[in-house]
Amino acid sequence: MKHILPTLIRDNPTSLYLQIASLLREEISSGLYEPSGKLPSESELRTRFGVSRITVRLALDQLVEEKIVERKQGKGTYVFNKQLSHGLDTLRSFHESLLIQGLQPEMRLIGHQLVDIPEALKAVFTNDSKQTLLVERLHLVDGQPIAVGKSYLLAEVASVSRDKIEHQPSYLAIESVTGQKVVRADLSITAQLADEKYASLLQIKPGMPLLIMKRSSYLADNICCDHSLFHIRPEHYEFVVSSYFKLN
């Protein structure tokens, strides 16, 4: 059933911009603008309410002042401090977890080369290969960098084109080469302060806190096919998990 949006009461003593702010506030609280958190454009709001641009801007200014919404230059108005989520109880790539929230994430390739397996990972990669494909990608949402992923993949994945590696989640690339799906992953989450490299890539100040997700992924034959480290800006990102009482 189509949702019917409320309209303004023209003879109401309350100012039109305050009525608009109140209606938008209620719609935000009800989750109408989930999952992206993006509000209609000023032009769309003007058409919807039949008011001037100034009235719409006053309404949005009111919500900005209340820290309910925030303006992103060149992108529009969004629910303030909108949280992106990554469920830990479902096996899903970082990129796919953003896609299912209705977002349009982007990946930019910043590193792609075959390297010798680092000494610290030789106990993780138990296959016969002495090399691994090192892939580094910048993850963005609405043009804003939110994470840097550094992945050590099976050397065979080097046969996948750079273009596909840039735009395709690692799990899909692995499956296309091996014919097998990733069946399990071990994850851990810690925190550390951003160094110069990650501060520059994520457009934050050095020393700001980052969430660190470490993930080792395995095929059905228990071969590690992906060891990744994600440096994540924490202010708009959360990890969630569902827990249940264990029945005897």
Rank of each mutant, 00 (worst) to 15 (best):
L201A: 02
H139S: 08
A185L: 09
V157F: 02
I189F: 05
D163G: 06
H231W: 12
E196D: 10
L193G: 00
I212A: 08
T178C: 04
Q203I: 09
P209T: 03
L202T: 00
N222M: 11
S200Y: 04
Y171N: 14
I212V: 13
V148R: 02
K164P: 02
A194W: 03
L229Q: 15
T126A: 09
H236K: 08
N222P: 06
A120Y: 05
L138P: 00
V135H: 00
D226A: 10
A199V: 06
Q192A: 07
A185K: 14
E175N: 06
A120E: 14
L134G: 01
Y152S: 03
I146T: 00
C225M: 11
H139K: 06
D195N: 15
S188V: 03
K197E: 13
L210P: 00
S188H: 04
G143D: 04
S217Y: 05
A120N: 07
K181L: 12
H227P: 02
S216A: 14
F125R: 05
L172D: 14
G149C: 05
N127I: 02
I223W: 08
V148L: 10
L172Q: 15
H167S: 15
S228H: 01
Q203W: 06
L201I: 03
G149E: 13
D221A: 13
H227K: 09
H139Y: 12
H167D: 10
L140M: 15
E156A: 13
D142Y: 10
H227M: 07
Y198I: 06
P206S: 12
S228P: 02
T126D: 07
L154H: 00
D226G: 04
Q203L: 05
L219Q: 10
S188C: 03
R184S: 15
T132W: 02
Q168D: 07
E175V: 00
V148I: 10
L229N: 04
K164Y: 14
S170Y: 13
L172A: 12
H227Y: 09
A147C: 08
G149L: 09
P145H: 02
L153G: 02
A191R: 12
L138Y: 01
I204V: 11
V182T: 06
I189C: 09
K205C: 12
K181A: 08
A147H: 04
A191I: 08
A173S: 14
V160P: 00
L193R: 09
R184W: 11
E235I: 03
L172P: 00
A155L: 10
Q192Y: 03
S228G: 08
C224Y: 06
E196C: 06
F125I: 10
P169S: 13
Q144S: 10
V177N: 02
K214W: 05
V124L: 11
E196Y: 03
E235R: 03
Q168L: 14
K130E: 07
L172N: 13
D195G: 06
S129Q: 12
I165T: 04
K150C: 05
L211Y: 08
I165P: 01
S129R: 11
D226H: 05
T126C: 07
D226L: 13
P234W: 06
T190D: 15
L154S: 01
R233Q: 08
N222H: 15
H227A: 11
D142S: 13
D142L: 14
M213E: 15
S228L: 14
